[in-house]
Write a protein that binds this DNA or RNA. Structure first.
Length: 714
DNA sequence: TTAGGGTTAG
């Protein structure tokens, strides 16, 4: 259904474009009627007509008239400059440049400025720089108008080397003190990542205006210097300078706290700034970033004419906040209102589907994308590959990957990481070998390969890959690569080797590295090393509830009940809240969520009676409950009952009851799958003959005929 | 006689 609607919308949009074009043609024909043609002989009317030309054809006609006119000579620079400028603003850079070339022996700086600007406006930044270089070779001196255009091109190209040369020219010519030139310099250095130079320029500028402030806030925002951006904004307020909407937009991008968000909204009101569409969209994104989805939604609902960006931002905000159902509902509303989505919208929708892990939704969304010709195909295809990976289908992921016309380092890394997440280490390495022959891997590729080795227990291969990073590819290992290695060694039970590896690290181990060690200690019940890792983690990552829970579980399963309770108490004292585990399953396009002991489903009675039967069946097959995973201080029998009602088991039973015989069951858990559930699921897959695909917070487990694809290596 | 800088809103 959605696919049909979207396809219709694409066709309608094309028709609208066509009608618009036809209207423009009609205007052109009426503008070139004989009565109007005579007026072109008047010089003033001619120039103003040039500026009013709306179509290339009418401008060309006018150009032809001027050449025939007795008032103008072919080399009349004033006229030529205006024509060049108008050709460029109608998007015809070729006409503009050929006309410019016919008089380029001229040393008129005005003409050169217009042509340089023409290239910049048409995003041909490299050609604008070539023209500037040519102009300098001809010893034509740039003026205060030249610099802003050229600097803009340097900024967009991130060409700091050229930018520095232009900066020097600006200083030599004395135009550096022009406020327009100074503002452009700040913008250029900001885009090139040199906020330090931006600040120095700002401090030394003899004259500033509101654009100077917005340029520097923009530079801070683009470079992630949010604190500095906010400080500058505060100083601006203190100095009594009235901000405009660009300053507000830049500052909104810097904000991470609700109180700051509310402050900036007050500034908007106090200064009587119009809260236009773009500011409302930016405010919505800002509140979502601060975790206030209610406020974000309020802004969204308050936008009377929601545009593509409003819809897309809201979808992305929900997806980022891990509220995929809300994201998809906004997408549905958007389609109902016949707003045509673009590739960015679909990236948000894909993110939402991916966190739902809904295979059916993935198929639908992929179908829509295929029919839409949205552009940005490389990014979309890569996102779809990742989507199928996350929805548990390596086969579909690989199909899309193989059909991609273009692949970049991200596409390759995504597919490799997909194999890794599903425990197919050998395939991951095979693909990595193919990739190396075509394209240079980056630091993310190495995370994918190393984690694939880790999940599959490929230790020698993992070492080889790690050692090759710097040696063969010039990629220096970062903390995340060390974390993968610790994870790999730790999972394999080489805990001391993992510890020694950390001790030899040339960079300071981060929370990820220690977290890997702690996780390994949980698998292999090593209390001593766990304490060491936890000590480091409580300094580095005190807010993360997972760390406390793992340490407490390690103590509990080693019989150290007092220690376990001490950690739980510490967690409570520090106000760190445990994340509640839940499992989701999709049945007939509807997503059902289960928590431990869940009784909210209408089928509750049926689920629990089926669960009891199933547990008896697998017990007869040899399953014994692993009471280590029921850690509360209660009687053994109660412990066992608590294990029975884990959310994973409830979701699986619900799936068995509500899906076709023999079909695969796909569930997703928000935390790591519990060890007892892992064992039970193996037995369930055996006695029911069903394939069960479990996505947990770390990887995938494919259960079939009593075994798991992870080889119990997780 | 002509022109310019700061937001890729996601």
């Amino acid at each position: 259904m959605a696919r049909v609607v979207v396809t219709q919308m694409v066709m309608q949009q094309k028709l609208t474009k066509f009608c618009h074009l036809r209207q423009q043609w009609r205007l052109f024909f009426s503008a070139s009627s004989p009565q109007q043609q005579t007026e072109f002989f008047d010089p003033e009317t001619c120039i103003s007509s040039i500026k009013q030309c709306q179509t290339l054809q009418s401008l060309k006609t006018l150009h032809a008239f001027t050449l025939r006119s007795r008032f103008y000579h072919h080399h009349d620079l004033f006229l030529v400059t205006n024509l060049v400028s108008q050709y460029a603003s109608l998007g015809s850079i070729s006409h503009a440049f050929s006309l410019f070339s016919s008089v380029s022996d001229s040393c008129d700086i005005f003409l050169w400025n217009v042509m340089i600007r023409a290239f910049v406006d048409n995003r041909q930044f490299d050609r604008s720089l070539q023209l500037y270089a040519q102009m300098r070779e001809l010893d034509i001196n740039p003026d205060n108008f030249t610099f802003p255009f050229v600097l803009k091109a340097c900024g967009y190209l991130r060409d700091i080397e050229f930018g520095v040369k232009v900066h020097k020219d600006a200083v030599d010519s004395g135009y550096w003190s022009d406020v327009f030139v100074g503002n452009s310099l700040i913008a250029m250095y900001g885009k090139c990542g040199r906020v330090d130079v931006c600040r120095q320029l700002f401090d030394e500028m003899p004259e500033r205006n509101v654009v100077t402030w917005s340029s520097l806030t923009g530079a801070y925002a683009q470079n992630g210097c949010y604190e500095e951006g906010l400080l500058l904004f505060k100083r601006m307020m203190d100095e009594g300078i009235r901000p405009n909407r660009v300053v507000i937009l830049n500052v909104m991008a810097c904000i991470r706290k609700v109180s700051e968000a509310e402050d900036v909204c007050r500034v908007v009101v106090d200064n009587g700034l119009d809260l236009d569409q773009s500011l409302q969209n930016a405010a919505m994104v800002m509140f979502a970033r601060c975790g206030r989805m209610d406020m974000a939604r309020k802004f969204f609902d308050g936008i009377s004419n929601k545009d593509l960006v409003s819809w897309t931002s809201m979808i992305e905000a929900y997806a980022q906040a891990d509220l995929p159902l809300e994201a998809l509902e906004v997408f549905r509303q958007m389609i109902l209102r016949r707003v045509l989505p673009d590739s960015v919208t679909f990236l948000g929708v894909i993110r939402a589907c991916s966190s739902l892990a809904s295979f059916q939704q993935a198929r639908t969304v992929h179908g829509i994308i295929i029919h839409c010709f949205l552009g940005n195909q490389l990014a979309l295809d890569t996102a779809v590959v990742d989507l199928y990976v996350k929805c548990g289908s390596l086969m579909y992921a690989r199909k899309v990957f193989d059909r991609m016309k273009q692949k970049n380092v991200i596409s390759w890394s995504t597919m490799i990481s997909g194999y890794g997440m599903h425990g197919h280490g050998r395939e991951a390495l095979f693909l990595f070998d193919q990739m190396k022959a075509l394209i240079k891997p980056d630091h993310i590729t190495f995370v994918s390969v190393l984690s694939a080795c880790s999940h599959a227990g490929l230790i020698d291969e993992g070492w080889e890959c790690f050692n090759s990073m710097l040696r063969d590819f010039g990629v220096a290992p970062r903390p995340e690569h060390y974390a993968c290695m610790v994870d790999m060694l730790g999972r394999a039970g080489k805990l001391n080797e993992a510890r020694e590896f950390i001790e030899r690290m040339p960079i300071r181990p981060d929370a990820g590295v220690w977290g890997s060690l702690l996780g390994a200690c949980r698998i292999h019940s090593n209390v001593e090393l766990a304490e060491m890792a936890a000590k480091a983690l409580f300094d580095l990552d005190a807010e993360n509830p997972g760390r406390y829970v793992i340490l407490s579980n390690i103590y509990a399963s080693s019989g150290k009940r007092t220690e376990a309770d001490r950690i739980r108490a510490l967690m409570k004292r520090r106000g760190v809240k445990k994340i509640t585990g839940h499992t989701v399953i999709e049945i007939k396009n509807k997503v059902h969520t289960f928590v431990a002991g869940d009784r909210s489903q209408p089928q509750t009675e049926l689920i629990y009676s089926e669960l009891a039967k199933l547990m008896d069946r697998i017990r007869r097959e040899g399953y014994t409950p692993d009471l280590n995973f029921a850690l509360h201080d209660v009687e053994e029998e109660t412990k066992e009952k608590m294990l029975y009602v884990h959310s994973e088991k409830l979701a699986i039973v619900f799936g068995l009851l509500n899906s076709g015989p023999g079909s695969a069951i796909r569930i997703k858990k928000n935390l790591r799958v519990c060890g007892d559930c892992h064992t039970a699921t193996k037995f369930i897959s055996k006695v029911t003959g069903r394939e069960i695909i479990v996505r947990d917070a770390h990887r995938f487990h494919h259960f079939k005929d009593g075994t798991c694809s992870c080889g119990d290596y997780w």
